[in-house]
Every structure is written in structure tokens, then in C-alpha cells.
């Protein structure tokens, strides 16, 4: 089965979604030569005319009657061949783009459920709504931008890449993360950065109780209040280098913040890389600033 997809700059006047399976003749002067092997039964829609202002090739998936497994099978087939894949009617479906290790540019128009973008490596995913628990779980690269809020465990165990939540996140953000960056535009809940092993979490709102619980490496930056610190977490000074890095990073995601915004930022770092619990923690406290460079 050959799927012909028309160019987004086509002069077709109607705005409705064209299902062009085996039907390239009417748009012959405007079609491009993307051909994709795809099972007709699994194909809801393809190209949306008049979308893609830059002449991008856009593939559109309507998830109204899809299963997560089928969505991800189709994404793996088409994502690398299109400039952008737009997912309509996600209805908070779980596991969207799970295990999509190759390059892709995906926009989810609505809310996604649990484990969106889990284990991605190069994909860029934008979600216009909210996401459920464990967004970006164990991702090893790529970028996830969530316009709404995230549930618990956002960025759990990530190895690299960037996860941006424009509004707030639930509990245990960045749990056991190894590297990479998590940005939360609003508040982040209970035990943010629990068991954190590397990377950075930046929170522009408040942090919940037990922030940085059992953190052994990495840094949590916070603009607002800290509910309380977890075990092995301490507050350290933020310096001009930190501020410059934060400003550059955050403004690259359209937060548009000036220099003064960063004056009252704080950062949370581990007291020790090898905490020993059950004893007086202070007896084992190391100077993190000096020793965390290895």
C-alpha cells in the first residue's frame, strides 16, 4: 500500500484533512514524492493541507481509534520521513512515542497520559496539553516540551535530554535522574529530585516537602520557596555563572526572563556523595563544592 502525501504549500483551498491513500491524481501538481509503506487499515489520516507554514511535510495521526501499540508502530514508520508529525485527539492516551529512539518532530495536540516519550533518544516532542505520570521516563536524549502540567515522576530516571513543563509538576520530579535537564515553570511537588544522581532540575515556582531527598549528585535550582529539604540535601550559593547558564537556557524555551529574575534563586546540592544513614549526617558531610567535580 502506497501512501501519497501532498505538500503543505499546496494550493488546495479546502482546509479539511485529505486522506490521500491511493489518490494522488487530483493533487498531482502539488504532491511530493514521499511514499511510505503503511497498512491501510491502520491509517486514519495523513497530510493536513495548509498546515506547516514553512513548507514542511506534515503527517497527521488521529488517535480516536488507535491503540498505543499501533500509534508507536506507525510513528516508527513515518517519523523520520516527515518534518513534523501532528497527533490529534490523543485523549490522554498512555505511552505515546514510547521507545521512539530515532529522530522525530512530534506535536501532540492535547493531553498525553502516562509515560509519554519514555526512552526517546533523539525525538523532539511538544504537548499542548497536560501529561500523566512519568513523562520522559528514562529518556537518553531529545526534548519534550509540555505546555500544561505534568503528573508525578516527570523525568524519572532520565539519562540525558531536556524535559520542559511550562506549568506545574506533581511529586518526585526527576526521581533517580542521572543526567539531563528538567525545567518546571510552576511548582514541583513532594520529594523533587529524590535519589538524584546527576543533571539539573530548575523550578521557577515553589518546591514541595523533602526536596532533594537522598540526592547524591546533581543540582536543583529553585526560584520560589522550599517546603523542606530531604536527607542529604543542602542549600548552596548560586553564582554568576549559574545565573548566566540559567538565563540562557530558560530564555531558549521562551521564558523571557531578565537578569534580576535570578537574584533570589537558590540551589540544592548533596551534602555528601556517600551518605551514611543512621549516624549523624553532619559527621559525614563533605564539602560538595570542592569534591563533586570528579
Amino acid at each position: 500500500m502506497v501512501l501519497m502525501v501532498s505538500n503543505s504549500n499546496s494550493n488546495n483551498s479546502n482546509n479539511k484533512i485529505n486522506n490521500n491513500i491511493n489518490n494522488s491524481n487530483n493533487n498531482s501538481n502539488n504532491t511530493i514524492n514521499n511514499t511510505i509503506n503503511i497498512n491501510k487499515a491502520n491509517t486514519k489520516t495523513n497530510k493536513t493541507n495548509n498546515e506547516g507554514d514553512n513548507g514542511d511535510n506534515i503527517y497527521s495521526l488521529d488517535l480516536s481509534s488507535y491503540s498505543p501499540r499501533k500509534v508507536n508502530q506507525d510513528l516508527k514508520k513515518v517519523a523520520a520521513d516527515y518534518d513534523k508529525v501532528i497527533i490529534k485527539n490523543p485523549n490522554a492516551m498512555h505511552y505515546i512515542a514510547a521507545g521512539l529512539t530515532g529522530p522525530a518532530n512530534i506535536e501532540i495536540d492535547g493531553s498525553a497520559g502516562y509515560f509519554v516519550g519514555t526512552m526517546i533518544n533523539q525525538a523532539k516532542i511538544k504537548i499542548t496539553g497536560n501529561v500523566g505520570w512519568f513523562a520522559g521516563d528514562n529518556m537518553t536524549g531529545g526534548e519534550i516540551i509540555i505546555e500544561g502540567s505534568a503528573g508525578d515522576g516527570a523525568g524519572q530516571g532520565i539519562y540525558d535530554g531536556t524535559l520542559v513543563v511550562k506549568k506545574s509538576a506533581g511529586a518526585r520530579t526527576g526521581e533517580i535522574m542521572k543526567n539531563g535537564t528538567i525545567i518546571i515553570g510552576g511548582d514541583s511537588g513532594f520529594m523533587t529530585g529524590i535519589f538524584m544522581m546527576g543533571g539539573r532540575i530548575i523550578v521557577l515556582g515553589d518546591l514541595g516537602e523533602d526536596a532533594g531527598e537522598s540526592i547524591i549528585r546533581g543540582t536543583i535550582y529553585v526560584k520560589g520557596n522550599i517546603g523542606s529539604l530531604g536527607q542529604n540535601a543542602k542549600i548552596a550559593k548560586i553564582d554568576e555563572t549559574d545565573k548566566e547558564e540559567l538565563k540562557s537556557l530558560l530564555n531558549s524555551y521562551d521564558f523571557n526572563l531578565d537578569n534580576q529574575y535570578f537574584d533570589d534563586f537558590k540551589k540544592i546540592v548533596p551534602k555528601s556523595k556517600r551518605p551514611v544513614y543512621g549516624d549523624n549526617e553532619d559527621d559525614h558531610e563533605e564539602d560538595y563544592e570542592e569534591k563533586h567535580e570528579d
Binding site: 493531553s111 500544561g148 502540567s149 503528573g151 506533581g170 511529586a171
Partner: peptide, 22 residues
């Protein structure tokens, strides 16, 4: 338990979905 259920009765694209805190 999950937003996926709320979306069956509420058009949550226009309504904020709030996480219940611990």
C-alpha cells in the same frame, strides 16, 4: 485516577486538570 477518564466527561483542553497533592 487519570486524566484519560476526566476527558470522557470534561473537555479538559479548556479546563485545567489539577493534580491532587500528597
Amino acid at each position: 485516577s487519570e486524566e484519560v477518564a476526566l476527558r470522557e466527561v470534561i473537555d479538559s483542553t479548556n479546563v485545567d486538570v489539577e493534580q491532587i497533592s500528597p
